[in-house]
């Protein structure tokens, strides 16, 4: 694809990742690069290692072998404390569901990363409110996740992922539980915001229509990156 576009040094790069869960090997020598501000779709059948790849890239799990480099730092060698900090400042995460705390309101959920960073509650809520506004769920700010529709909850989750102004957003099947209209709204909101703010997005999906929102696609098969076109 368009390898010549954008900056030459990747923001986030994984090389030859191997990761086993028990006896099954989820990743088997996968390499992938994410450039600054790029929206990259990772597709593949279920069980092809998509989620494990995301977990490795986001510093949620350490690969058994191989390296993950973020902005010149080796993520696979960083201590857990620093990884956790990185995840809440430089990265944003959106899952299929479950990333919102069920007992907190949408507004408090979106404000949580700021609270963790030591921002005062009032200011955190104001800034989170602006993000909810951008995603069209300001009116649902005082609702708890269980009281919102799936699409609204996912948009609140996007607000939470983006509230700290991260460099990379990791989205693991963000529309997996949504109907096509809600899915379109979530994806449009995500890609518009990411493009405007120059945030890179690593998007895991098995849905080609969702993958089409990305600039580029990486296809996984059996834990490794499959060629997309005729081998050169």
């Amino acid at each position: 694809m368009s390898n010549t576009e954008g900056s030459t040094v990747p923001l986030l790069a994984a090389r030859d990742l191997v990761k086993a869960h028990g006896r099954t090997e989820a990743l088997h020598g996968a390499s992938v690069e994410l450039r600054e501000g790029e929206i990259l779709a990772v597709t593949g059948a279920s069980g092809s290692g998509k989620s494990t790849l995301l977990h490795c890239l986001a510093g949620i799990v350490r690969p058994d072998t191989g390296s993950v480099t973020y902005a010149g730092e080796r993520l696979d060698r960083l201590p857990e404390k620093r990884l956790s900090e990185l995840r809440r400042t430089e990265f944003g995460v959106v899952f299929q569901f479950g990333q919102l705390i069920p007992e907190l309101t949408a507004l408090d959920n979106a404000a949580l990363p700021l609270l963790l960073a030591g921002v005062r509650r009032q200011e955190a809520r104001e800034r989170a409110g602006e993000w909810l506004e951008r995603f069209g769920v300001r009116g649902q700010g005082e609702l708890r996740p269980g009281e919102m529709s799936g699409g609204q909850a996912q948009r609140a989750a996007l607000a939470r992922a983006l509230v700290t102004g991260p460099k990379v957003v990791f989205a693991d099947e963000p529309t997996g539980a949504l109907d096509s209209l809600a899915s379109e709204q979530v994806m449009t909101a995500l890609t518009h915001t990411a493009r405007e703010s120059g945030t890179a997005v690593l998007l895991i999906t098995h849905d080609a229509q969702v993958a089409a929102y990305a600039d580029r696609e990486v296809r996984l098969a059996d834990g490794t990156v499959a060629p997309l076109e005729v081998a050169a």
């Binding site: 995840r87 995460v93 479950g98 990333q99 990363p113």
Partner: peptide, 12 residues
Amino acid sequence: RGLAAQHAAGVP
């Protein structure tokens, strides 16, 4: 599961 998601999202 929810706690794991929070931890993955960077909640210490």
